[in-house]
């Protein structure tokens, strides 16, 4: 190996150009090859190519304090943690492995039926939330939550999944009935079933024949959509439940519409805490 350094005659810019064709992960790995690769893989030109092209707009719309950075690599990793934008109503981050964009719409950015009626929904702040406010369900029969985002904002040529980010209060009840979720983008629609509370209990009522009939109908109508989604733990202490997936081609199809609805069960529901809806690229 000694004395045969193949790349020592290539300018650093040339090696940076090569590394910008890999991925953030490969660039970080390359930095451990040799010192030429290290300085090339840390150059701004490499990390500029991994950042979403419209990152300056995102930074301009970010809520204070301003994002400070001394290199594009530092900025990239800073943006892997969510930054609040749009007057604290949305968050933006980058998926580390691919550099693709993730957004979360806060509960304040969603349409929540009865959300403005204090008897039914309460707006509260939780220290573990990235947003100043989350929505807590006090009690409704008609549970309907929806949100939309312009497809232009998301990374093109990317498959995304949307997740409702939630918690269940200690006294949560009535959320075990299958809810229907849907994602629409242009001609594409994806529908799923979500069971918000797996070991749920119902207050004031036991299973009636009508309940069982409704459950059966619901399960029949969704039998082609696979098993119901259940909440999964996230690393930030919240739970998430998948709402569906979509492929964002060139972002030319207008808004992506996402919703969760449970209006068939007829029972009262309470204790659901909604942080927002997150859209993340699917990593292969």
């Amino acid at each position: 190996m000694e004395g045969l350094d193949l790349f020592s005659n290539l300018p650093e810019g040339c090696i940076s150009h090569i590394i910008s064709f890999t991925s953030p992960r490969d660039a970080c790995r390359s930095s451990a090859v040799c010192s030429i690769f290290r300085s090339a893989s840390e150059s701004d030109s490499v990390w500029e190519s991994f950042l979403p092209p419209d990152y300056p707009d995102v930074l301009a719309g970010s809520v204070s304090p301003p994002v400070r950075f001394s290199s594009k690599k530092e900025l990239f990793f800073r943006l892997c943690d969510p930054v609040l934008i749009d007057d604290n109503k949305m968050s933006f981050s980058i998926e580390k492995r691919t550099g693709r964009k993730c957004y979360m719409l806060s509960a304040r950015k969603l349409w929540i039926t009865w959300g403005d009626t204090p008897r039914y929904w309460k707006w509260t702040s939780l220290p573990e939330s990235r947003f100043p406010e989350v929505a807590e369900l006090l009690g409704v029969c008609w549970l309907e939550i929806s949100g939309k985002i312009d497809a232009h904002l998301l990374s093109p040529k990317t498959t995304y999944k949307a997740y409702l980010v939630i918690k269940l209060g200690e006294e949560a009840y009535g959320l075990d009935y299958p809810a229907e979720t849907s994602i629409k983008l242009g001609d594409h629609a994806s529908n799923k079933i979500a069971i918000l509370q797996q070991d749920g209990t119902r207050r004031f009522q036991s299973w009636t024949a009508l309940d069982q009939l409704n459950m059966w109908r619901s399960s029949q109508s969704v039998s082609n959509r696979g098993d119901g989604q259940v909440p999964q733990a996230r690393s930030d202490g919240w739970m998430e439940i998948e709402m569906g997936e979509f492929f964002n081609d060139e972002g030319e199809e207008g808004d992506i519409e996402m919703s969760l609805m449970e209006v068939n069960g007829g029972q009262w529901k309470s204790g659901l805490i909604v942080e927002g809806i997150e859209m993340r690229p699917v990593c292969n």
Binding site: M1, I18, F21, S30, C34, R38
Partner: peptide
């Protein structure tokens, strides 16, 4: 430039630094 850069980029993908050094005969100068 883009084509030959893409070649090496494809080659680097998923490989460990040790394997890259071995295959491309690069000296570890750290």
């Amino acid at each position: 430039m883009d084509l030959t850069a893409q070649w090496l980029a494809d080659f680097l993908k998923g490989k460990s630094p040790r394997l890259i050094r071995e295959l491309l005969k690069i000296k570890n100068d750290f």
